[in-house]
Every structure is written in structure tokens, then in C-alpha cells.
Design a protein around this nucleic acid. Structure first.
Lengths: 110, 110
DNA sequence: ACACTATATTACTATATAATTATATAGTTG
DNA sequence: CAACTATATAATTATATAGTAATATAGTGT
């Protein structure tokens, strides 16, 4: 039996994928890794603008992918949803396989 | 040691996530499931326009997520990259957990 | 050859959103 | 309180892309 997925459910899932479909957000998440970092640390580490980083962090926070801990003036973020690492690993592995396979299609020609 | 991910690598991974970040494409993939279907079958099953389905299938094909088998006039597609099911399951499970957790935050108030 | 059908492509419109600049907010220090 | 700092927000611009209508392409049957 195939479950019926409603349009709303598909929207929710698509939203989550779209969230991960931005290089700057992936850069933020990869830079954070398992550590906690402040906005300015992320700005320094990624080279992106402060407003841009703040906005992306806001998006990730609202989606529950990161958590925020305020401490005085600084805001410290950390990855709250570790499943994103699994997702990225799956995608990365699959992409490597795919390139390997496509490379294989061309060997023996030259 | 944390691997350094280049901007190009992040782009590739983000591209893949962005590909999955569209409800219509998710609908197509979910409708396909493990079966092979023609474009017109997909059009009928999803309710989307023919041109739209064709375009999305083209995108998915170029990305290697589906494969195409032409048979006379009809084009039959099937999911070629089963890892997408794993990705969707992971996201879906995580979203459910998240909603359950957020629901828990509100219980006992009313 | 002609009509018909299935799919792909093109051109267009509308919408979403990433990046940036400027500004607001709020905590800190003198 | 004034100056300073860190972060967030608003407004703007530019770009990407989803959906659609029209058309092209190509296989099928008469």
C-alpha cells in the first residue's frame, strides 16, 4: 500500500529541502558543525555579510534546524537538528557515485 | 579533523537539495514510486499540466534522479536514484518528531 | 501524404528569494 | 547618559524559476 501524501505534506517536505538548497545556508551549517558559534564568528568564518548571515540564521532557527542562546550582546547558534548531517552525507555520497559512474561511461573512448 | 568543503562542492549539494525542494517534483517522484510511468500517466495522476510535468521530468532526468525509456511515442520514466526515498523518509520522520515536540511544548496550558 | 497523438521546447508572466545597504534594537562600558 | 558593539530588521534590487499557452518534433495509423 502506498501512503497518500497530501499537497500540504509535500509542501512541508519541499520546504525543508528548499531550506537546504542554498549554498550559504549549507556553508553556515557546515561551519557550525557540532560547535556553538556567534553570529560574528560565522561572519568571519564564512566571509558573508552580517545581515545575510543573520537572515539565514533566522530562517534556520524558525525551521528548528539551529537553536539560539543569547548571552549579552552576542547570539550563539548551534545545530539543533543533527539529521541534516545525515541528509548531506547521503547526498554527497550519491553525487560522488554518480560522477564516478558518468566518468566510467567515458573511459575507453580516449 | 573537519573536511573543507569548497564552494563548488556546496553548490553541487545545494543544487540537489533545491531539486527536491519543489512540491510538484516531489509529487512526481512519489507518484512514480518504484514503477515506470509515461508522461501522460503522470499528467493524469498528478493533475499538473503536460508541459509542466515534461519540464520537471527533464530537470530530474538531467540530474540523474529519473531515467527515461522511449517506446514509440511515449516516454516512460522511472526513479533511477533510490536514495531520494531515503532522503524523504529522513525529512518526513524528522518533521513529525519536530511537530510532536512543539505540540508537547503547548500541552498543559489549555 | 494526412491526420492524430505523445512529448518536448519556447516564450512569457508571476512569484519567490538571495544579497546588500541602511537603520533599528538592545546590551555594554566609560 | 553617551559612545560603542553585536545582532536583527526593513527596504531595495537582481535573479531564478514555476506554471502556462503556443508551437515544434516525431512516431503511428489510415
Amino acid at each position: 500500500m502506498k501512503e497518500e501524501l497530501s499537497d500540504e505534506a509535500l509542501e512541508l517536505i519541499a520546504d525543508r529541502f528548499r531550506l537546504l538548497g542554498d549554498p550559504t545556508r549549507l556553508r553556515i551549517l557546515h561551519t557550525l558543525g557540532r560547535d556553538e558559534m556567534s553570529v560574528s564568528e560565522l561572519v568571519a568564518a564564512t566571509g558573508a555579510g552580517q545581515a545575510n548571515i543573520s537572515k539565514h540564521l533566522g530562517v534556520l532557527l524558525k525551521a528548528g534546524i539551529v537553536s539560539r542562546r543569547k548571552e549579552g550582546l552576542t547570539a550563539n547558534y548551534r545545530v539543533a537538528d543533527e539529521s541534516i548531517f545525515e541528509l548531506c552525507d547521503t547526498v554527497c555520497t550519491r553525487l560522488k557515485d554518480q560522477f564516478e559512474q558518468r566518468r566510467g561511461m567515458l573511459t575507453g573512448i580516449v
